[in-house]
Design a protein around this nucleic acid. Structure first.
Lengths: 75, 75
DNA sequence: CTCATTTACTAAGCAATCCTTAGTGTATCC
DNA sequence: GGATACACTAAGGATTGCTTAGTAAATGAG
């Protein structure tokens, strides 16, 4: 679904999942699109940040500005 | 400061900034540490998400859980 | 249980990308 | 003007990823 050749997609995805290799940017973008998550989600180093990105991405674009101000106001 | 050899650090950083090459994970982690930003910040595809990550990262760790719930509650 | 099929995973070499070197050009400051 | 620092690039050697070929482990049907 991400446009990876099916002949090698199983090996490649497995190498990514196990951390043997890292995908290039175009591949990451396509995987994010297929999985409906923001690209940055793949690079979150803790679960809270990962969840935050998912929740933010799930918001309607108009709501994101308000969400951002909300978090900013907390500091 | 990120532990990149000074003989080539200028060329490398310039290649990263201009999108000619992409740094490996270890280098990205070190740059994030030096710049005091979360790693995912470098991979944000829009300014709102980038700012969100900075604001979230700036919060005290105890406050992050509350921030997360706040955003979750918005959807 | 057995066989067939799908899914999970890996090594090895070719292919692609990055890192280093060497260098040019442009600010900046004395 | 000269010196120093900063910005940027091409090219090749060094490294990493992708493809191929294959084994192993689940899963499902009969």
């Amino acid at each position: 679904m991400a446009g990876i050749d099916e002949m090698s997609s199983s090996a490649r995805m497995n190498q990514y999942e196990r951390g043997k290799h890292a995908p290039d940017w175009l591949t990451v973008e396509r995987l994010a699109a297929v999985l409906n998550v923001p690209v940055a989600y793949f690079y979150a180093t803790d679960d809270d940040a990962a969840e935050l990105l998912l929740a933010f991405y799930a918001l309607a674009p108009e709501a994101r500005g308000r969400a951002l101000e909300l978090i900013k106001a907390m500091s």
